[in-house]
Design a protein around this nucleic acid. Structure first.
Lengths: 236, 236
DNA sequence: TGTACATCAGTGAACGCGCGTTCACTGATGTAC
DNA sequence: TGTACATCAGTGAACGCGCGTTCACTGATGTAC
């Protein structure tokens, strides 16, 4: 007595729905929207490829008919954009939480905690990170603009308006670097310039780990500390 | 009198061939192989997406019927692999040429030239670079193993055997760092560890430029010099 | 020198597939009277 | 309290498309006799 999908004889057009979802009550149709984002996020976490995401695959994962997606998103790009926004928000929250947790430990420890949180998000969710920062830009998908005015920032309004949501996390980084300089824990140089090089260094550390996993990578903490010493100039 | 593709009435199945290629003479069939690699390379340079490359697109670009590709490659993966090998070779040659050109200028200048050549290749061919180092690994495509034994290397044979061809370029990097240390231009630390952090730093510098082009990036040379000072410890 | 034949480079049509999207429809839940 | 109706959440079938790959075929070039 094997458990079979409801429906018995499978429809030839779309594969048999593995589990038939129960319909949402009136006024709660919006729930499906969240389920769709979560399902697409799950699929992207496995493939890491935005282009390879298919609406039919998402519908299969959720257990609905494909056209039902159009009740909540006008097209595929809108669904993908919603997923990216959700992931950027997760990254932002992870970095902020780490920084707040170490607020009492001094600017250097706080900066280190934020950097490590960024790297851990990337290494623990490599495909999600790739989707956020490994895309070629200007293709079908663009992210919504959010304001970014980093302290001491040289970001022109025009440039900032097209920055991804993750730019807020970059603001944390500039802040952290500035505080270390203010506390005389690091040489006083343009914090924006230093933060930029820290960001690229961290990105390189985690991105190459994802692309060349068989390389004998040193411990993440060691590389991050090397960056904080070498680029920011943190003593200790 | 507009110039029309030969054939007049277009076939409905494959789009009309825009230019009809003249057939290769006997014994020269291999020429098409090179043309196919070049065409696929051209397409990838525009899209930067290995998954989005299609045999039909390549055939269109070259001006042949799609099945002709199978005379030279057993399947799509083989063609893509050939393209990647060609691109890796270009990167390797670019870095080596830069290093050789500056051989007489001392180890520091030579290392700097190699690093800049690596970054220039990446920024001048962003999509090609993305194809080489931005892929998620272990998907359908894997690169052929080539031996890598960097001086002072800690790369185990098992790990090295799965490294991409570009690993030879990494060998140049370890060499360059070692020579700077030997000439007492930089602190004597494990050159493999330093070279690894330089590689990730350079990768971050160029990869993020490709993914977030609207960011107010500082000049490439400045960031590279910051890395050589901060990570390698080059004085001056 | 002529001719039958083999080889080589490449073609045209077709296959089955998964895709995004559209369309007319269903059927349960709530609401006005 | 009963009932006609509107709303809401979701469905099933179909569309046209581009894809990788297979198959039997073509037609020019070279070669053996």
């Amino acid at each position: 007595m094997s458990v079979k999908p409801a429906g018995g004889a499978a429809c030839a057009h779309d594969p048999a729905p593995l589990t038939r979802r129960s319909r949402n009550p009136h006024g709660q149709g919006g729930r499906l929207r969240a389920e769709l984002i979560a399902a697409a996020d799950r699929i992207l976490a496995q493939t890491g490829d935005v282009e390879a995401l298919s609406l039919r695959g998402v519908a299969r994962e959720v257990g609905i008919a494909t056209p039902s997606i159009y009740l909540h998103f006008p097209d595929k790009a809108a669904l993908v954009q919603a997923v990216l926004e959700a992931r950027f928000e997760q990254l932002r929250l992870a970095v902020r939480a780490a920084a707040e947790t170490h607020a009492a430990d001094g600017p250097a420890a706080q900066l280190r905690a934020g950097c490590l949180a960024y790297c851990r998000f990337a290494t623990e969710h490599p495909n999600a990170y790739r989707v956020l920062f490994g895309r070629r830009p200007g293709r079908d998908l663009t992210l919504p603009a959010k304001t970014l005015t980093p302290p001491g920032g040289e970001v022109s309004p025009g440039a900032a308006s097209s920055l991804p949501v993750g730019a807020e996390a970059f603001g944390f980084l500039v802040d952290g670097v500035s505080r270390c300089m203010a506390a005389d824990l690091a040489p006083q140089v343009d914090p924006m310039r230093i933060a930029t090089s820290v960001w690229t260094a961290l990105h390189g550390i985690v991105a190459l780990r994802g692309s060349v996993p068989h390389f004998p990578w040193p411990p993440l903490e060691q590389q991050v500390d090397d960056v904080l010493r070498g680029i920011v100039g943190l003593r200790e």
